[in-house]
Write a protein that binds this DNA or RNA. Sequence first.
DNA 1: TGATCCCGCCAACGT
DNA 2: ACGTTGGCGGGATCA
Length: 832
Amino acid sequence: RSVLKTPLKQAATSHSVLTEIQPDCQPLTTPPKPKEILPADPWTPTSNLKMLISAASPEIRSREQRRELSNNTSEVLQAKHCLQEHLSGDEYEKSQPSRKEKSLGLLCHKFLARYPDYPSTAENTYICLDEVAEELNVERRRIYDIVNVLESLHMVSRLAKNRYAWHGRHNLSKTLHALKKVGEENKYTQQIQLIKKREYEHEFDFDGERHEETARSFGSNKRSETSFVELPGMEFCAASVNSRKDKSLRVMSQKFVMLFLVSTPQIVSLEVAAKILIGEDQLEDLDKSKFKTKIRRLYDIANVLSSLGLIKKVHVTEERGRKPAFKWTGPEVLPNIQETKLETNSATCPPPASESITSKEQCSKNLFPSRGKQTFTRHPSLIKLVKSIENDRRKIQSAPTSPVKISARTDQNLSAFPSQMAQVPAIAKHQLEEQSKKAKEMKIKLSRSDLECNLSSPEVVPKPEPPRTAAPSQPSALTQPLGVCPPSHSSVPPVILPQTPSGVSYAIYLHPSQAHTVTTYSPSFMLQPLPCANVTGIKSINSKVLNKVTTEEGDNQVATDDPMKPLAAKERPTIKSETSSQRCLKRSQALQENNSIKKYRSDEESLDTSMTFFPSGYLIPLTQCTHGNKAGFSEKEKAGMCSLQPTTYSPPIAGVIPVTASELKVNIPAFHITPLNIMLSPTSIAAAPVLSNSCLNSSNTSSAPNPSSSVLNFTLQHVGLIPAGVQVPASPVLQHVPVSSQPENVSHGSENMNLQEEKVSKNTATPGLWWVEWEPSVPKEPQEPQTVTEIFFRTPGGPNTVSSLSANSDGTARVSQGTLYIPQRKLEVSED
DNA sequence: TGATCCCGCCAACGT
DNA sequence: ACGTTGGCGGGATCA
């Protein structure tokens, strides 16, 4: 095994290298033993799996083939020798199993591909590390890395040495809830703030004095640390067999996840994570090496989490430069969803899984009396829809479902998506996984409700159906009393998410700015009251923009599902021989894209009526004047334009938005807002895809109302941050100021002007109000320009309480309240 | 370069 | 004592 995967690293002495490479083999001259070749053979028993994976990457495949060839003969050495002598040659390089191909992430994908996300609760799935290691052709050591992380999420549990039980994602939801809870208890949010604060301070004062106290307070609130978070029902198992519960990787993994779950923009930079994880244990001893090691570990964890589709790599750009970070892309973890502590009790190790599932069933039954299927155990937050949209770019239309260990299935899948697969970039393979997961989730969701299925299927899945005009289906959705807009207009379907019990949600959508990459000028926006009826009728869209938002990057998935896309039908056929449930799945996938609204409704209906559905009138379309750009933003305007009439944003009444465009003319220089739909939720859990109709009402092209102000006011009022009658001045004057946790500091920041230029602005007219804009670092190809705009405002309540309203260019946005978040010159963005 | 992170030594553990 | 785990960090790769 090692023989194959251990190509010489480089031009070192061939002999010594080979020796190293084949430690467990006969002398270096020993040609691959038949026995070893077999397991390593990419086209053997596990070939299906490999096929699937390699199929995603022509490169990998070809390489594997190449490898295979070389492995089968004693030519190996020769070849290597040869190659070595021509290190610079392409041949050699190509035959080299590129580091990437050996990455933990890819390995993890392979690993995950072996097991279903939601294994049958009837029979337990076991994992034998040895086997897996062998089949995946890697050292066991690597498997440990993966398993440990999975274990931290309770996706697997250790039964005995070399033996694990696979639970898949059945426990994920609960685990995340638990982790979030613990994360909150650990005050990670505050810790993050502290760290950021310190970073901030570092930038200005060179004396590391005050760090002392920071460190103090930091280290002080450590407590239940170093303990492995377990799930009721699972701990038994884990504890009994695995005494070392505080294993670093496992714990680290959990903590890392916690950080995501508790932080507002669910983005965590490695640096911060590392510091927090270190800081917890040993008191701040800025040990360089320790930090480095921590980072390394985090990468390992991150790779696995990425493979799971829970996070994705991004970069936070700030003055300091680009810093690696990760963004949570996993399911939203609703705060108060009662932890399903319906745990039964008696349970042996394997049982825990089924048990937890049982409890979930209970839960779901409660939620959906009529339903009893085990599949919809989870209470999929509607937000997932958003997530899915968020991840639109995920192409790879294939991989209907994540591969199961059954080879037959894999084959089927493969045959179904031959060509497509062949076009998928190797690295993008993971996306496939994500998608399949998404699909599964949807599947589950759908299965939960026939109604849902019925509603969605008719329109979305009609495979035989020719490129239908979105129009037909749209209306139906629109006619609904909900405040949603026609999905067809935008590739980014508008969605109204269920609200937290505490409050109503608002759907606001702004028109996407065409200048995704432009960051210097302020696009103009219009805030207009837009009754549903009107919305429904609106058809004009800035396809260019919209496409950019969702279809960009040639996202097959999206494209396929996009009703606007003629090719949509093209792929449907593949769904042919699927089961109805599978179809639902597919449909759901399709729905995500364009019928989110509908979908949402379905969910809403099927989910539970207790959810406060937001009045239709709460849809606030903020269209951007497509042309009212630069021209419209003369220096003068930038200076102090915004002539905002003190308008009171009273709670909108169904179907009506108490604001008029004219009232919201505000331009906030340096404030770049991209398309967004904002779901405002007092408690910070809403996220919604945006529905943007370009120039819908762009009649007012010249005016450039600033969405931020309107949104802000609207938000502030509805979130209760400001009296209904009060209005926050639409930042007539904006200054670039350093942002710090101390509001006071903000007031005088002229000296720090350079900091965060145009990134963070403060509305001097409204103390305690900041906005932060995250721009895409580089408008790479059709990748999604992840521009994030975030508005921070201090809550009257506590000095450290703030709320933030952030809008992502991908159409999602969220409002949250919580502890002070230091706007840090963070400019999130691009991914790799 | 700095960001990533593979690789595998070797110590802690389990049996 | 020996096999299993997995902490750790050198140094190779990648971007």
